[in-house]
């Protein structure tokens, strides 16, 4: 069974991705600070119904210095890692001019630095094992403007650049690197949007609605599948046509 690490896999989009991949027959290792009730249920469901498996490993991804140890433990406990889904991210909205420096630093640490360092150690094992798949969950905010999200946007744009260059670096070894850029999806992260903002996003989307978690998880599943073996260094946008 192929192992796939999903960061931020205890809730929201990450949990949706973890569930989808478990249903597709992967052994999913969900990394998050705390186990949620929904994750516990999903693990029980996977244990009962299969075909994949879902495990939880508690870890604070802001602890950059501990990431190497995490990867060593994952490889020891689960074996070779086939896929990595860098999904964990935080979002603070606010005007840059009055955003506290500690918030800016925390956003960059969790959304950019942490996935890059985690990828460094996991891609090493993929290189040693002869191949793998990396999926970076970016955002449409990485290539379109949205007032109040400048720092979050910077971190997401950084993942798009990281994806393209790393794909060139490790392609020769059979490792693919891609991004999925969701539009505004209905999760805890977007709960700050009020009804008017939500309607505005829907109105501006070609399909007149928001994408849901399942839409994004489908794209991740596709990239991890053998069907996507010739796709690397690109981004799949899942935004119901919001940026079309």
């Amino acid at each position: 069974m192929r192992n796939v690490v999903v960061t931020g896999g205890s809730r929201g989009l990450g949990l949706g991705i973890a569930r989808k991949l478990t249903a597709a027959g992967y052994r999913v290792i969900a990394i998050a600070r705390k186990e949620s009730n929904q994750l516990t249920s999903a693990m029980e469901e996977a244990e009962r119904d299969g075909p994949g498996l879902l495990h939880f490993v508690p870890f604070d991804l802001a602890e950059i210095g501990e990431i190497r140890r995490l990867v060593t433990t994952l490889r020891k406990d689960f074996g070779p890692i086939y896929g990595l889904v860098n999904n964990a991210a935080i979002a603070f909205d606010g005007v840059l001019a009055i955003m506290h420096n500690s918030q800016i630093e925390h956003l960059v640490r969790v959304n950019t630095l942490s996935p890059i360092v985690l990828t460094k150690y996991i891609v090493r094992s993929m290189m040693a094992d002869g191949g793998g798949r990396i999926v970076n969950v970016a955002s449409v905010v990485g290539f379109t403007g949205y007032s109040g999200l400048s720092v979050y946007a910077a971190t997401k744009a950084s993942m798009l650049g990281f994806t393209r260059s790393l794909a060139r670096e490790v392609g020769r070894l059979g490792v693919t690197v891609n991004s999925v850029a969701p539009g505004f999806v209905d999760t805890a992260m977007t709960q700050n949007l009020d009804a008017e903002q939500r309607q505005q996003i829907e109105r501006r989307s070609a399909l007149r609605r928001l994408p849901d978690v399942d839409d994004v998880a489908n794209a991740v599943e596709f990239i991890l599948s053998d069907k996507a073996k010739s796709i690397t260094g690109t981004v799949i946008t899942v935004d119901a046509g919001n940026t079309a």
Partner: peptide, 13 residues
């Protein structure tokens, strides 16, 4: 340098 990176990864194992 990519070959050297593979060597570093395998030596870690």
């Amino acid at each position: 340098s990519l070959c050297l990176a593979i060597i570093v990864a395998r030596l870690e194992d």
